[in-house]
């Protein structure tokens, strides 16, 4: 399978020239955000929730979550299975809206505006709040098309710019050298870790401000996990990350803030170091010390 265009050092130089001339955003962040003076304009907290109750039909999954996510930080969501953290995460980009029987009370704001406000565009919210799933989920198209699928749909780039986007995002996630000679190949031949990096590149290509990660490394081996984790650390403060994880070590390693969910409640939240060393609540203490879960 031949690559749709020539790849070499000359090409790389050409790409850099094209990028500097093109409309393509050079980093995986919103252009407005890239030029943003943090003291002006937007609120410090990119996402806030106010008294958020989530229900499926009559079953309450989560109640009374009031929380703010600071721009450019990593927040870990921990808690036993069924505690509501994944549902909470999927509410932030309105992935639950379509689920049968889903209802919510309270509010979620993105840059101070409710995500359910009538003037909000769902597709724009999802572009600004990206998501990485538990298992890699590449689309049935070539590796290159996978990376640019979202960018194409949102009209971020077109034509030759798409090649630029593909290369930059793949370089960003450290996958470029592994796939540069087979951009036209099926993504399903990549390893699980590589597929997850590909999905990360795909999510970055639409220029999100916030990335929601639902146990992004639970299906990966330790080396791929380490690669993803170090990428996540590098991506702040350009991006705000919210990570659901069952891996307490991972929460400790990468996050600034940690939220502990238990039994449909946000039991405790605070700076990660503090929450792990001196938790205020008994349940938190039991969970982070492995006595529950």
């Amino acid at each position: 399978m031949s690559v749709p265009y020539a790849v070499g050092e000359g090409y790389a130089r050409k790409v850099m020239d094209e990028v500097s001339k093109s409309e393509v955003v050079p980093l995986g962040i919103d252009p407005v955000l890239a030029n943003l003076d943090p003291d002006q304009g937007r609120p410090r907290q990119v996402i806030t929730t106010e008294g958020l109750n989530l229900k499926f039909s009559e079953t309450t999954i989560l109640s009374g979550v009031t929380m703010g996510f600071d721009r450019g930080t990593i927040t870990a969501l921990i808690g036993p299975t069924g505690s509501g953290k994944s549902t909470f995460l999927r509410t932030l980009n309105r992935m639950n809206d379509k689920v049968f029987g889903f209802r919510h009370e309270g509010d979620v704001t993105l840059d101070g505006e409710s995500i359910w406000a009538p003037q909000q565009d769902l597709l724009t919210i999802r572009r600004r709040v990206g998501m990485l799933f538990q298992r890699p989920n590449p689309f049935p198209m070539s590796i290159r098309d996978n990376v640019v699928a979202g960018a194409k749909a949102h009209g971020i780039a077109r034509g030759k710019q798409l090649d630029v986007v593909a290369e930059m995002r793949l370089r960003e996630v450290g996958l470029w050298d592994a796939v540069k000679d087979r951009l036209g190949d099926s993504p399903y031949r990549l390893s699980g870790g590589q597929q997850q990096l590909l999905c990360l590149a795909r999510a970055l290509a639409v220029g999100p401000e916030v990335l929601l990660l639902d146990e992004p490394t639970s299906a990966l081996d330790p080396i791929s996990t380490e690669a993803v984790e170090s990428l996540l650390r590098e991506m702040t403060p350009a991006l705000t990350l919210i990570v659901v994880t069952h891996n307490l070590g991972q929460a400790r390693r990468i996050s600034d803030q940690t939220m502990f969910f238990f039994d449909g409640h946000l039991v405790e939240h605070g700076a990660t170091a503090e929450l792990f060393t001196s938790p205020r609540e008994r349940d938190t203490d039991r969970y982070v010390n492995g006595l529950m879960g």
Binding site: N93, M95, K98, L122, L123, T124, I125, R126, R127, G130, M131, F133, R135, N137, P138, F139, P140, M141, A149, G150, A153, H154, C199, R202, A203, V206
Partner: peptide, 23 residues
């Protein structure tokens, strides 16, 4: 899962169908 991935990327239902489900 791949359909959700496309939705989470901000694709419309038509795009999800055309670019993921049918292929």
């Amino acid at each position: 899962l791949p359909k959700e991935g496309a939705e989470a990327l901000g694709m419309t239902d038509a795009e999800v169908t055309r670019r993921v489900t049918i292929p």
